[in-house]
């Protein structure tokens, strides 16, 4: 992408700049492929950016290094954010993102590991990725490897029973190397979470399942996310509840369910692009 808009000079410039690039790539990719889920991609962009800029110990030159941290995008419909982060981190050329959703291309709209270096597994059906991630964390813990396993899930995804089966097992085995981040944008496929399937009090549920629960009051704020990642989980698996805004960064998409589905075209695309270029998020 030639023009990435205004560059902000801040202490956390790396993650903030990565988040901006993820959003701009995502907008272009979704526009190009006429694909859905831009709302959830924008809500998760900051979590993904902080992870790939600072937290994850991953190696673009050696994506399968045994001691790497594992990252599993359990809300696979927002895989665009991960594709963009991986490209920006040098796992593959940024240029290739332009083929998102193309016939015969590598980037399916639900995240795929098959031909994309750096993606650990393919997901798309909800409540799968976190369980596979749990297996990876079990292995790392049982073998005494130092690596951690991170997984981003949606708050709607917490409706899935398997999430709670996984929560029990992770707690039983005290997987203190396992970190979940809930992208709590408070919306799911047909409406607000508390109207569709009220999961509140979400934090209390995870605590009752034996997890260390920490919250980022503003889950789009990098400093708050950073603090949550650093917090000691006291020997337990950790869940970070990141209170995000669906469609974050584009005024007309924020908290609008329509943008779970619609792809921005024409004037709306241009307006979204302008907002993201100028934003000082």
């Amino acid at each position: 992408m030639e023009n990435m808009g205004k560059i902000t000079e801040r202490a956390d410039m790396q993650s903030v700049e990565l988040a901006r690039r993820i959003r701009l790539h995502a907008l272009d990719m979704v526009n190009h492929a006429h694909a859905s889920h831009i709302g959830g991609i924008l809500s998760a962009a900051d979590i993904i950016a902080v992870l790939y800029a600072e937290i994850l110990n991953v190696f673009p030159d050696n994506p399968h290094a045994p001691d790497r941290d594992r990252f599993i995008m359990s809300k696979g419909h927002c895989g665009v954010a991960v594709y963009a982060a991986l490209a920006e981190r040098g796992f593959f050329p940024v240029e290739t993102l332009k083929t998102y959703g193309d016939d015969g291309g590598n980037f399916s709209c639900h995240i795929s590991h098959k031909r994309v270096p750096g993606v650990e597994i393919s997901t798309g059906s909800l409540g799968h990725g976190v369980c596979v991630a749990c297996g990876m964390a079990l292995d790392a813990k049982m073998k005494g490897r130092g690596n951690k396993v991170y997984s981003v899930i949606g708050d709607g995804e917490c409706n899935e029973g398997t999430v709670w089966e996984m929560a029990m097992l992770s707690s039983q085995y005290a997987l203190n190397n396992f970190v979940l981040i809930i992208d709590r944008n408070s919306m799911q496929a047909t409406g607000f979470c508390n109207k569709v399937m009220n999961m509140e009090p979400l934090g209390e549920k995870w605590r009752a399942f034996g997890w260390h629960v920490t919250e980022a009051a503003d889950g789009n704020d990098h400093e708050q996310l950073r603090k949550a990642f650093k917090e000691d989980s006291l020997g337990k698996p950790k869940v970070i509840i990141a209170n995000t805004i669906k469609g974050k960064g584009v005024s007309f998409m924020e908290n609008e369910l329509l943008w779970h589905y619609r792809d921005p075209q024409g004037e709306l695309y241009q307006q979204a692009k302008n907002e993201l270029m100028e934003a000082d998020l």
Partner: peptide, 9 residues
């Protein structure tokens, strides 16, 4: 799914 994760390792 956990079995799959363990096998991938």
């Amino acid at each position: 799914s956990v079995a799959a994760g363990l096998a991938m390792e």
